[in-house]
């Protein structure tokens, strides 16, 4: 793989430090720290309930951070005050950060009342103020790339699950994010449909898209990720290359991976 001559390449796209989150008395995330470099693909694995979705939701401003720091592309979303509680940056910074991030949900969340094309053009035109023709041109290119060219005029309910998820990925890409998060993008799909979605994610990785993928597809994580983060009970148990994690001597990691091999 070529290394780009961009001076920003070595600066992390995402940096998370000592992140904490509790729902009432339930501590869901505890001292989570990791960073993602430009062009890197990071897979997050771990049993359900370990806090993976919450982590993604905190970074995407869908939940409120209790403590710790999050930075995206050098812009700080939140940081600790003296008491160790998270304080958010101003609205405009939060907005800019949001526009640098894409999130793909487990159950797609396409807008049912919009055609597939409009699902892709609405945010660029409403949020970024792009001209309608420009937004449509870009949307059609994306649909073409993701094999949905003939679905532009269709409505979400007319698509298979796999096609809906590909459309949702295209919708996220339409805003040209610096980093995309996927929360179990294939978990809501019939097994025969997961392949087409994984293929799209793989092709994005080949284009050097920076991505964080929460997944239960172990073979996929092993094969595609530059780095794997294993989480359990709100903690990062270990992170490393796929080889390191899959040959880990850590008991919790071993136990989890063994369960997934059956």
């Amino acid at each position: 793989m070529q290394s780009e001559m961009n001076p920003n390449t070595d600066k992390p796209v995402l940096e998370v430090k000592s992140l904490r989150k509790a729902f009432g008395s339930l501590e869901v995330l505890n001292d989570i720290s990791f960073s993602v470099k430009h062009g890197e693909v990071v897979a997050i694995i771990g049993p359900s309930g370990s806090g993976k979705s919450t982590l993604l939701r905190l970074i995407n401003q869908l939940e409120q951070v209790d403590g710790g720091e999050i930075s995206v592309c050098g812009q700080q979303l939140c940081s600790n005050n003296e008491a160790g509680n998270a304080v958010y940056s101003d609205q405009e910074t939060m907005r800019q950060i949001r526009l640098n991030i894409g999130l793909v949900f487990q159950n797609f969340n396409l807008f049912p009342h919009f055609s597939i094309l409009r699902n892709l053009t609405e945010a660029p035109s409403v949020v970024l103020g792009k001209r309608k023709s420009d937004a449509e041109k870009k949307a059609r290119q994306l649909l073409d790339k993701l094999g949905l060219a003939d679905k532009a005029a269709a409505y979400p309910w007319q698509l298979s699950g796999g096609q809906q998820q590909r459309a949702a990925i295209a919708r996220a890409l339409a805003l040209d994010p610096e980093i995309i998060f996927f929360d179990e993008p294939t978990s809501a799909l019939d097994p025969e449909l997961t392949g087409e979605v994984l293929k799209v994610i793989r092709s994005l990785a080949e284009e050097n898209m920076t991505m964080v993928v929460v997944t239960h597809e172990m073979a996929f994580a092993r094969d595609l990720a530059d780095r794997i983060i294993f989480m359990d009970q709100g903690l990062i148990i270990e992170q490393g290359t796929p080889d390191e994690v899959f040959n880990s001597s850590n008991e919790r990691t071993k136990l989890f991976l063994r369960r997934y091999h059956e």
């Binding site: 894409g102 969340n109 807008f111 409403v126």
Partner: peptide
């Protein structure tokens, strides 16, 4: 998930409600 998807795409709360 509808309003969450809109929020992540950058819609303001009024845009999310109206659109």
């Amino acid at each position: 998930g509808q309003s969450e998807a809109a929020k992540v795409l950058g819609f303001s709360s009024w845009q999310t409600f109206s659109k």
